[in-house]
Design a protein around this nucleic acid. Structure first.
Length: 406
DNA sequence: CACCGTCAAGTCGCA
DNA sequence: TGCGACTTGACGGTG
């Protein structure tokens, strides 16, 4: 069972999302941007392995304007060596990678131009996975698309247009239930009819439910759409964001909710893709909670302690108790409580002063004075921004914490 | 350096 | 028939 995240790690500053505007397209710009993205992809995969993350969604931006008409460069041969290198790294380390074209890729549109572009986009994703020599457990996930006043006609059009894909893309394409049009029941009908795997998304299902109220019954049927060559069934998991629009993803995974879900589904041995704002941070948390015996709880606390301290002194103390009793789940539960709280000015000042003291030997007197004077003027966000830049420049241990992330 | 409009793209609801 | 919302991070121009 693998637990992973989508596209953008927060714990490291590598990015595979460099891009440029269409009007700025040039061969040089394309080559530079693509190379930078690919080099960072390898670094992200390494970072993932160091953190026990073996499931990763590769960003569609990896090849900028990869499926656009303006781009007729043979990037898959131009970057053949590095693509092969990435592919070998993925294979050697038993990583599973997937891709997820965006909302504008609509295979079932009644507009032939849209279908044509959508096929081109799916084929671009497929070419990328082919170019790194990924096996057919590496999937391309899309939603079914629009309704156009007749859902069943639109579903039929999906099945017909599916036939227009290349053989490789047909082996990679899988479909996911969405939050308003195609419920898991609809998606299963299509998946079973054209023999492609189905991804169950718990958040979309809660907003657009169908079939049995018992998720396990549904998943049992979903799992049958996954053949041996497809690899383990893949699920999308996310919590709903409170105080935002229904369907928005939460800022972080609630540990208790996740474990409840996990315990319900784990016997089916799925791979779970988290769709959450804090990305790898929640992935690491979920993996830690599922395999707490592999974890050094002190490392967890080192990353989160300033984030907790900024919000609540009493939760800081509770965390400390969990730490002392080596209770990984307990520690994360208290961290979750802290993360759901706003930063409190007085605690933030206290935290900054504490950090200044702790890193006294790593800061120049001039830097300390500038920081202190900002703090004393109550310009806290400026102080924190400055501290962030200084930490990055001097490579302080502080950059390994989540203090500048949450 | 902080801020903000724009972006390659499609669908749907509403006027 | 046409426009804004939806969703989203990064670019790129401005002050």
């Amino acid at each position: 069972m693998k637990i992973g995240y989508a596209c953008i790690p927060l714990g490291v500053k590598y990015s595979t999302n460099r891009r440029f505007l269409l009007k700025n397209f040039s061969e040089d710009r394309f080559l530079d941007t693509t190379m930078a993205n690919l080099l960072d992809l390898k670094k992200i995969l390494k970072y993932n392995i160091e953190n026990g993350i073996y499931l990763f969604r590769i960003s569609s931006d990896i090849i900028p304007l990869g499926s656009h008409n303006i781009n007729d460069l043979q990037w898959y041969s131009l970057f053949k060596d590095i693509l092969k290198d990435i592919g070998n790294y993925i294979k050697t380390n038993n990583i599973r990678v997937t891709m997820h074209p965006g909302q504008y890729t609509v295979l079932n549109s009644p507009n032939p131009e849209v279908v044509k572009k959508s096929i081109k986009d799916i084929e671009y994703h497929c070419t990328f996975l082919d170019s790194i020599n990924a096996d057919y457990k590496s999937k391309i996930i899309i939603h079914v698309g629009g309704i156009y006043n007749d859902k069943y006609e639109a579903m039929d059009r999906f099945k017909l247009n599916f036939k227009l894909l290349s053989e490789s893309a047909k082996k990679r394409l899988i479909i996911e239930n969405d939050e308003k049009s195609y419920s898991i029941s609809d998606v299963l009908n299509i998946g079973e009819s054209i023999a492609i795997p189905v991804v169950f998304d718990n958040l979309h299902h809660s907003l657009n439910p169908s079939l049995s109220p018992n998720i396990k019954d549904i998943l049992h049927r979903v799992s049958k759409t996954w053949g041996t060559k497809d690899g383990p069934m893949k699920l999308h998991y996310s919590d709903m964001a409170h105080n935002k629009k229904p369907g928005a993803h939460s800022n972080f995974v609630n540990t208790s909710n996740f474990l409840e879900f996990y315990n319900e589904v784990s016997s089916l041995l799925p791979d779970i893709m988290l769709e959450v704002k804090d990305k790898d941070l929640s992935a690491i948390k979920c993996i830690d909670c599922v395999t707490p015996h592999n974890v050094d709880i002190n490392n967890i606390w080192d990353k989160y302690k300033f984030t907790v301290l900024e919000r609540s002194q009493s939760l800081y103390d509770k965390c400390y108790n969990a730490l002392k009793s080596n209770d990984v789940f307990g520690l994360y539960k208290e961290i979750d409580k802290a993360l759901s709280m706003p930063i409190k000015l007085e605690y933030q000042i206290h935290t900054l002063k504490y950090i200044l003291h702790a890193f006294e030997d790593n800061l120049l007197p001039k830097e300390q004075n500038r920081l202190l004077s900002l703090i004393n003027k109550n310009e806290i966000s400026k102080a924190k921004g400055l501290l962030n830049r200084i930490s990055t420049k001097n490579n302080l241990n502080l950059t390994n914490t989540y203090f500048f992330i949450y």
